[in-house]
Simulated assay, not measured.
Amino acid sequence: MGEGKRGKPGSELERLEIFQELATEYFSMVALFEPDGEPPVHSAEAERRRWLELFRAALLRKFIVRDEHVSLKLVVRALRLCNYSADRHLAEGADGVVALFTPEMVQGRQHVAPGEGPAPDEGPGEGPAPDEGPDRFEDVLYGRLLHGDADRFHRSAWANDTVRLSAAAAARFDAERALSAALELVRYGMANNLLKSPRTAGGEGGPPGPAGGQSRPSSTSQYD
Rank of each mutant, 00 (worst) to 15 (best):
M1Q: 04
G2N: 08
G4W: 04
K5H: 11
G7H: 06
K8C: 08
K8A: 15
P9F: 02
G10H: 07
G10Q: 08
E12R: 07
E12L: 12
L16I: 08
I18G: 12
Q20G: 06
E21H: 06
E21I: 02
T24L: 08
Y26E: 07
V30Y: 00
L32G: 05
L32N: 05
D36S: 10
E38G: 00
P39A: 00
H42I: 00
S43P: 03
A46R: 09
R49I: 01
F55T: 01
L59C: 05
K62Q: 13
D67Y: 05
D67M: 00
E68I: 00
H69I: 03
H69G: 01
V70Q: 08
V70P: 06
K73V: 03
V75Y: 03
R77D: 10
A78W: 10
A78H: 03
L81I: 00
L90I: 15
G93I: 02
D95F: 00
V97T: 09
V98Y: 14
A99W: 03
P103N: 00
M105F: 09
Q107N: 14
R109P: 05
H111T: 04
A113W: 10
G115D: 11
E116W: 01
G117S: 07
P118N: 01
P120V: 01
E122G: 13
P124C: 01
E126P: 13
E132D: 15
P134R: 04
F137L: 15
V140M: 04
Y142P: 10
Y142M: 07
L146Q: 11
H147P: 03
D149L: 09
A150D: 15
A150H: 15
R155G: 03
A159H: 15
D161M: 03
V163G: 06
A169Y: 14
A169H: 14
R172I: 02
E176C: 11
R177P: 03
R177N: 14
A178V: 02
L179R: 13
G189I: 10
A191S: 13
A191N: 13
N192F: 11
A201V: 07
G202R: 15
P210W: 12
A211I: 12
A211E: 08
G213Q: 07
G213A: 05
S215K: 14
S218I: 05
T220A: 15
Q222W: 07
Y223I: 03
